[in-house]
Design a binder for these strands. Structure first.
Lengths: 116, 116
DNA sequence: GAGTTGTACAAACATCTAGTTGTGTGTAAC
DNA sequence: GTTACACACAACTAGATGTTTGTACAACTC
Protein backbone atom coordinates (compact mmCIF):
# COMPACT_ATOMS: atom_id res chain seq x y z
CA UNK A 1 0.00 0.00 0.00
CA UNK A 2 2.83 2.31 0.88
CA UNK A 3 4.18 3.12 -2.55
CA UNK A 4 5.79 6.45 -1.78
CA UNK A 5 6.87 6.49 1.82
CA UNK A 6 7.45 9.76 3.59
CA UNK A 7 10.96 10.63 4.68
CA UNK A 8 10.48 9.88 8.35
CA UNK A 9 8.83 6.54 7.69
CA UNK A 10 11.63 5.39 5.44
CA UNK A 11 14.27 6.31 8.02
CA UNK A 12 12.40 4.57 10.84
CA UNK A 13 11.73 1.45 8.81
CA UNK A 14 15.36 1.32 7.68
CA UNK A 15 16.35 1.38 11.36
CA UNK A 16 13.80 -1.30 12.22
CA UNK A 17 16.12 -4.16 11.34
CA UNK A 18 19.05 -5.46 13.42
CA UNK A 19 21.14 -6.32 10.35
CA UNK A 20 20.81 -2.80 8.99
CA UNK A 21 21.62 -1.24 12.35
CA UNK A 22 24.70 -3.46 12.51
CA UNK A 23 25.72 -2.27 9.06
CA UNK A 24 25.42 1.34 10.20
CA UNK A 25 27.49 0.55 13.28
CA UNK A 26 30.12 -1.07 11.13
CA UNK A 27 30.22 1.97 8.86
CA UNK A 28 30.90 4.20 11.86
CA UNK A 29 34.35 2.59 11.90
CA UNK A 30 34.97 3.66 8.33
CA UNK A 31 33.65 3.21 4.82
CA UNK A 32 33.19 -0.37 3.64
CA UNK A 33 32.34 -2.27 0.49
CA UNK A 34 29.39 -4.63 0.23
CA UNK A 35 31.75 -7.58 0.42
CA UNK A 36 33.36 -6.27 3.59
CA UNK A 37 29.93 -5.69 5.09
CA UNK A 38 28.85 -9.21 4.19
CA UNK A 39 31.68 -10.97 6.03
CA UNK A 40 30.42 -10.77 9.63
CA UNK A 41 26.95 -12.03 8.66
CA UNK A 42 25.67 -15.46 7.77
CA UNK A 43 23.94 -13.94 4.76
CA UNK A 44 24.67 -13.85 1.05
CA UNK A 45 26.24 -10.87 -0.69
CA UNK A 46 22.93 -10.30 -2.45
CA UNK A 47 21.00 -10.08 0.82
CA UNK A 48 23.42 -7.48 2.19
CA UNK A 49 23.27 -5.62 -1.10
CA UNK A 50 19.51 -5.35 -0.62
CA UNK A 51 19.89 -4.04 2.93
CA UNK A 52 22.38 -1.49 1.64
CA UNK A 53 19.84 -0.39 -0.95
CA UNK A 54 17.25 0.16 1.77
CA UNK A 55 19.71 2.30 3.73
CA UNK A 56 20.59 4.18 0.56
CA UNK A 57 16.92 4.85 -0.22
CA UNK A 58 16.53 6.26 3.31
CA UNK A 59 19.59 8.43 2.62
CA UNK A 60 21.32 7.03 5.68
CA UNK A 61 24.27 6.07 3.51
CA UNK A 62 25.64 6.99 0.09
CA UNK A 63 27.94 5.21 -2.32
CA UNK A 64 31.11 6.34 -3.96
CA UNK A 65 33.13 4.74 -6.69
CA UNK A 66 36.67 3.50 -6.08
CA UNK A 67 37.91 1.39 -8.98
CA UNK A 68 35.60 -1.55 -9.41
CA UNK A 69 34.12 -1.32 -5.93
CA UNK A 70 31.48 1.02 -4.54
CA UNK A 71 32.16 1.70 -0.85
CA UNK A 72 29.32 2.77 1.44
CA UNK A 73 29.61 6.03 3.36
CA UNK A 74 27.55 7.06 6.38
CA UNK A 75 25.27 10.07 6.03
CA UNK A 76 25.08 10.78 9.73
CA UNK A 77 23.09 14.00 9.47
CA UNK A 78 20.18 11.97 8.18
CA UNK A 79 19.54 10.63 11.65
CA UNK A 80 18.53 14.16 12.56
CA UNK A 81 15.10 13.69 11.04
CA UNK A 82 14.38 10.71 13.26
CA UNK A 83 16.09 12.22 16.31
CA UNK A 84 14.08 15.40 15.80
CA UNK A 85 10.74 13.66 15.75
CA UNK A 86 11.51 11.58 18.82
CA UNK A 87 12.90 14.48 20.83
CA UNK A 88 9.99 16.72 19.99
CA UNK A 89 7.58 14.10 21.23
CA UNK A 90 9.56 13.08 24.25
CA UNK A 91 9.52 16.67 25.46
CA UNK A 92 5.88 17.08 24.63
CA UNK A 93 4.90 14.02 26.58
CA UNK A 94 7.32 14.56 29.41
CA UNK A 95 5.82 18.01 29.91
CA UNK A 96 2.51 16.53 30.82
CA UNK A 97 2.81 16.91 34.58
CA UNK A 98 -0.94 16.80 34.52
CA UNK A 99 -1.35 13.10 34.04
CA UNK A 100 -3.75 12.72 36.92
CA UNK A 101 -5.73 15.76 35.86
CA UNK A 102 -5.89 14.39 32.37
CA UNK A 103 -7.06 11.02 33.56
CA UNK A 104 -9.82 12.64 35.56
CA UNK A 105 -10.76 14.59 32.45
CA UNK A 106 -11.06 11.33 30.57
CA UNK A 107 -13.41 9.97 33.21
CA UNK A 108 -15.38 13.22 33.19
CA UNK A 109 -15.86 13.03 29.44
CA UNK A 110 -17.09 9.50 29.79
CA UNK A 111 -19.44 10.37 32.67
CA UNK A 112 -20.25 14.08 32.36
CA UNK A 113 -22.61 14.28 35.36
CA UNK A 114 -19.95 12.85 37.67
CA UNK A 115 -22.42 10.31 38.95
CA UNK A 116 -19.83 7.63 39.39
CA UNK B 1 2.80 -12.10 13.90
CA UNK B 2 5.36 -14.23 15.64
CA UNK B 3 9.05 -13.70 14.94
CA UNK B 4 10.00 -12.23 18.35
CA UNK B 5 11.47 -8.98 17.12
CA UNK B 6 14.00 -7.33 19.38
CA UNK B 7 12.84 -4.37 21.43
CA UNK B 8 14.49 -1.70 19.37
CA UNK B 9 13.26 -3.11 16.08
CA UNK B 10 9.68 -3.26 17.26
CA UNK B 11 9.78 0.36 18.44
CA UNK B 12 11.32 1.58 15.20
CA UNK B 13 8.95 -0.38 13.02
CA UNK B 14 5.98 0.85 15.07
CA UNK B 15 7.16 4.40 14.37
CA UNK B 16 7.64 3.66 10.68
CA UNK B 17 4.01 4.36 9.81
CA UNK B 18 2.38 7.79 9.53
CA UNK B 19 -0.97 6.55 10.85
CA UNK B 20 0.66 5.19 13.98
CA UNK B 21 2.69 8.35 14.50
CA UNK B 22 -0.53 10.34 14.17
CA UNK B 23 -2.18 8.10 16.76
CA UNK B 24 0.70 8.78 19.16
CA UNK B 25 0.39 12.51 18.50
CA UNK B 26 -3.32 12.35 19.19
CA UNK B 27 -2.69 10.50 22.44
CA UNK B 28 -0.36 13.28 23.58
CA UNK B 29 -3.52 15.37 23.96
CA UNK B 30 -5.03 12.82 26.29
CA UNK B 31 -6.12 9.22 26.47
CA UNK B 32 -8.52 8.06 23.77
CA UNK B 33 -10.58 5.03 22.85
CA UNK B 34 -10.20 3.18 19.58
CA UNK B 35 -13.37 4.80 18.27
CA UNK B 36 -12.11 8.27 19.11
CA UNK B 37 -8.84 7.46 17.39
CA UNK B 38 -10.65 6.19 14.31
CA UNK B 39 -12.61 9.40 13.68
CA UNK B 40 -9.93 11.54 12.01
CA UNK B 41 -8.89 8.74 9.64
CA UNK B 42 -10.50 7.34 6.53
CA UNK B 43 -9.97 3.85 7.93
CA UNK B 44 -12.22 1.34 9.63
CA UNK B 45 -12.27 0.79 13.37
CA UNK B 46 -10.67 -2.62 12.80
CA UNK B 47 -7.74 -1.17 10.91
CA UNK B 48 -7.07 1.33 13.70
CA UNK B 49 -7.50 -1.44 16.25
CA UNK B 50 -4.67 -3.33 14.54
CA UNK B 51 -2.41 -0.27 14.50
CA UNK B 52 -3.13 0.13 18.20
CA UNK B 53 -2.10 -3.49 18.73
CA UNK B 54 1.21 -2.82 16.99
CA UNK B 55 1.85 0.16 19.27
CA UNK B 56 0.86 -1.93 22.26
CA UNK B 57 3.25 -4.73 21.27
CA UNK B 58 6.03 -2.14 21.04
CA UNK B 59 5.01 -0.96 24.54
CA UNK B 60 4.55 2.57 23.25
CA UNK B 61 1.03 2.57 24.64
CA UNK B 62 -0.96 0.59 27.17
CA UNK B 63 -4.66 0.04 27.69
CA UNK B 64 -6.77 0.58 30.74
CA UNK B 65 -10.32 -0.39 31.40
CA UNK B 66 -13.04 2.21 31.94
CA UNK B 67 -16.45 0.57 31.89
CA UNK B 68 -16.93 -1.04 28.52
CA UNK B 69 -14.21 0.93 26.78
CA UNK B 70 -10.47 0.44 26.85
CA UNK B 71 -8.75 3.81 26.44
CA UNK B 72 -5.18 3.96 25.13
CA UNK B 73 -2.52 5.60 27.28
CA UNK B 74 0.88 6.78 26.11
CA UNK B 75 3.95 5.10 27.54
CA UNK B 76 6.27 7.98 26.78
CA UNK B 77 9.35 6.56 28.50
CA UNK B 78 9.39 3.83 25.89
CA UNK B 79 10.69 6.29 23.33
CA UNK B 80 13.88 6.36 25.39
CA UNK B 81 15.07 3.13 23.83
CA UNK B 82 14.86 4.56 20.33
CA UNK B 83 16.11 7.99 21.37
CA UNK B 84 19.02 6.34 23.14
CA UNK B 85 20.16 4.37 20.13
CA UNK B 86 19.92 7.35 17.81
CA UNK B 87 21.67 9.75 20.17
CA UNK B 88 24.47 7.32 20.88
CA UNK B 89 25.11 6.95 17.18
CA UNK B 90 24.70 10.59 16.31
CA UNK B 91 27.42 11.46 18.81
CA UNK B 92 29.61 8.64 17.66
CA UNK B 93 29.40 9.69 14.06
CA UNK B 94 29.55 13.40 14.71
CA UNK B 95 32.78 12.84 16.64
CA UNK B 96 34.50 11.65 13.53
CA UNK B 97 36.42 14.84 12.76
CA UNK B 98 38.75 12.60 10.83
CA UNK B 99 36.58 12.07 7.80
CA UNK B 100 39.28 13.05 5.33
CA UNK B 101 41.87 10.95 7.11
CA UNK B 102 39.47 8.04 7.10
CA UNK B 103 38.76 8.43 3.44
CA UNK B 104 42.47 8.39 2.66
CA UNK B 105 42.77 5.27 4.79
CA UNK B 106 40.10 3.66 2.65
CA UNK B 107 42.03 4.46 -0.50
CA UNK B 108 45.23 3.20 1.10
CA UNK B 109 43.62 -0.10 1.99
CA UNK B 110 42.45 -0.46 -1.58
CA UNK B 111 45.83 0.45 -3.09
CA UNK B 112 48.45 -0.33 -0.45
CA UNK B 113 51.50 0.67 -2.52
CA UNK B 114 50.08 4.10 -3.22
CA UNK B 115 50.73 3.64 -6.93
CA UNK B 116 47.63 5.50 -7.99
C1' DG C 1 -34.63 -8.88 28.41
C1' DA C 2 -33.74 -5.97 24.08
C1' DG C 3 -31.21 -2.68 21.96
C1' DT C 4 -26.99 0.12 21.65
C1' DT C 5 -22.14 0.90 22.03
C1' DG C 6 -17.19 -0.18 22.13
C1' DT C 7 -14.14 -3.39 20.83
C1' DA C 8 -12.02 -7.75 19.19
C1' DC C 9 -11.65 -11.86 16.33
C1' DA C 10 -11.76 -14.31 11.72
C1' DA C 11 -11.23 -15.02 7.03
C1' DA C 12 -9.81 -13.24 2.74
C1' DC C 13 -6.81 -10.80 -0.10
C1' DA C 14 -3.06 -7.85 -1.88
C1' DT C 15 1.21 -6.11 -0.94
C1' DC C 16 5.64 -5.95 1.28
C1' DT C 17 9.81 -8.10 3.29
C1' DA C 18 13.93 -10.80 3.92
C1' DG C 19 15.95 -14.22 2.30
C1' DT C 20 17.51 -17.65 -1.38
C1' DT C 21 19.81 -19.29 -6.06
C1' DG C 22 21.21 -18.25 -10.50
C1' DT C 23 22.88 -15.05 -13.90
C1' DG C 24 24.57 -10.80 -15.96
C1' DT C 25 27.76 -6.71 -16.16
C1' DG C 26 31.43 -3.38 -15.51
C1' DT C 27 36.18 -2.74 -14.13
C1' DA C 28 40.85 -4.32 -13.49
C1' DA C 29 44.56 -7.41 -13.92
C1' DC C 30 47.23 -10.60 -16.52
C1' DG D 1 41.13 -11.41 -24.98
C1' DT D 2 40.45 -14.17 -20.89
C1' DT D 3 40.03 -14.43 -16.20
C1' DA D 4 38.70 -12.68 -11.78
C1' DC D 5 36.36 -9.81 -8.79
C1' DA D 6 32.61 -6.71 -6.97
C1' DC D 7 28.24 -5.90 -7.45
C1' DA D 8 23.33 -5.82 -9.19
C1' DC D 9 19.24 -7.78 -11.36
C1' DA D 10 15.65 -11.48 -11.84
C1' DA D 11 12.73 -14.93 -10.25
C1' DC D 12 11.21 -17.33 -6.53
C1' DT D 13 9.75 -18.59 -1.52
C1' DA D 14 7.87 -18.05 3.13
C1' DG D 15 6.10 -15.26 6.14
C1' DA D 16 4.43 -10.53 7.82
C1' DT D 17 1.52 -6.50 7.24
C1' DG D 18 -2.46 -3.55 6.06
C1' DT D 19 -6.88 -3.46 4.94
C1' DT D 20 -11.55 -5.01 4.23
C1' DT D 21 -16.15 -7.21 5.46
C1' DG D 22 -18.63 -9.76 8.51
C1' DT D 23 -19.47 -11.40 13.07
C1' DA D 24 -19.23 -12.01 18.10
C1' DC D 25 -19.30 -10.48 22.64
C1' DA D 26 -19.30 -7.81 26.94
C1' DA D 27 -21.13 -3.91 29.27
C1' DC D 28 -24.04 -0.34 29.74
C1' DT D 29 -29.11 1.88 28.83
C1' DC D 30 -33.77 1.45 28.68
Amino acid sequence: MTVVQDELSSVFSALADPTRRAILERLADGDATVNELTEPFALTQQAISKHVQVLERADLISRTRVGSSRPCVLEAERLDAAAGWIERHRELWADRHDRLEQHLETLRRRDPKGTR
